[in-house]
Design a protein around this nucleic acid. Structure first.
Lengths: 232, 232
DNA sequence: CAGTGGTCTAGACCACAAG
DNA sequence: TTGTGGTCTAGACCACTGG
């Protein structure tokens, strides 16, 4: 049997093959690392690397003392790259434009306070903008920035640099929540995105955190037809 | 300095801290593994493990010979678990029901042939069904199965077991494409999902492959209000 | 060419949890 | 208690690629 790859990836391929061929079925316990290392003629660390990679993708389930099992319901775990919108547009070979619509220091709404877990008197910046591809509205952005966590945002010229791009390089986050949903365009949204009211919109809500402090909460509303794609 | 965690995770934490504190800025090259190992008083393999984990999340950019750099635009890379619908519903404490609507061997449409890369005479099974939560329509499923890649599907009682659950345990895939989008409900979809025509729908299109052969292509249409959530 | 990350090894000890 | 995975080590060689 000629192995396509070398090292731990060869072990990974062989384990995958056995699962795929149903030699090891969902729920089955597979041999322990030491035995596999012996069988494959490599160090246990090499087997460990391979099995850990497979566990990361959800194909295996590993528990100390209990052993390693083929996952009962191989969870489809996808890694999703959330691109910078400018890059996403430019990578399609389209021209990118950015328009700042509004920039206001204001009191957070109740909803925003709840999501960002801040008080009614917290200093926040509300920024709305549009990103355009080939001159056509691509996404509408509605963002709240916690000034307390990134005071320098006040000195940024948001007319010429999107808040996202500045934040990404100046306010690294430690955690984030992201949600995807669908909605229909209100009259206002339709106008902003150059579509008809009632058209379907793809929405991304994202909040990023610096430890326990919210940095920013943003809603991205994509024009009709947007598809987010990835592989498994 | 007391480290919160031990081993490679402590190294990871410290590197993250330096990036976060802007001691190392986006685009900067950081010391090589050997130097960091010396500084942290651990083996190079330990540093390697930590930096590799950070590179996996997109925070670092590593190139042989060139070195390790803080990513210019820390790509937000999210891992997304695509659950079995039954589990997703039951995990919310709701009762789950499944209804097979139609099950036909038929010729694939042009669109399906293109997506699955099969010929006009390929044997395919077309299955439509509904998943219900607490008796209410939750998602409408429109699926095509390539009989050539999983002939045993013909013997499965799809009235009592969803095609997805059977496939997941009997037809492991080697690759998959998945896309998310938004649309508005047609009259038919509205009827099937118990909502009004024109309401917003969240759509997942998924194709899974066994090497170069398509196993199944499915469109999941979620009732209004569905949110897909994850963390960064 | 040579510096860097990528990986392997053999052995060791640790942490966890099942029995 | 004890088997299992989780991790660390020190050293070695390899693979890639920038200079």
């Amino acid at each position: 049997m000629a192995l396509a790859r070398r090292g731990w990836q060869a072990v990974q391929d062989e384990v995958r093959r056995r699962i795929h061929a149903r030699e090891w079925r969902p729920g089955d316990q597979i041999p322990n690392e030491a035995d596999l290392a012996l069988e494959f003629g490599c160090a246990r660390a090499t087997v460990n690397r391979a099995l850990q990679a497979l566990a990361d993708t959800g194909l295996l389930d590993r528990r100390r003392k209990a052993g390693t099992f083929v996952a009962q319901h191989p969870v489809r775990r996808a890694t999703l790259d959330i691109p910078i919108i400018r890059h996403e547009i430019e990578n399609q070979g389209l021209t990118y434009d950015y328009q700042l619509l509004r920039r206001n220091r204001k009191r957070p709404t109740l909803n925003v306070r709840k999501k960002m877990q801040i008080g009614p008197d917290a200093a926040v910046l509300h920024v709305t903008s549009r990103h355009l591809a080939e001159g056509k509205p691509y996404v509408y952005e509605d963002r709240w920035v916690n000034i307390h966590s990134v005071p320098a945002i006040l000195d940024v010229d948001l007319a010429h640099q999107s808040a996202n791009e500045w934040l990404v390089t100046h306010a690294p986050f430690t955690a984030g929540d992201i949600a995807f949903s669908a909605t229909t365009a209100s009259r206002q949204e339709a106008k902003l995105l150059g579509i008809k009211a009632g058209d379907a919109l793809f929405v991304i809500d994202r909040i990023t955190w610096d430890n326990e402090m919210a940095i920013t909460s943003v809603r991205l509303t994509f024009a009709t037809g947007y598809r987010m794609h990835t592989t498994l």
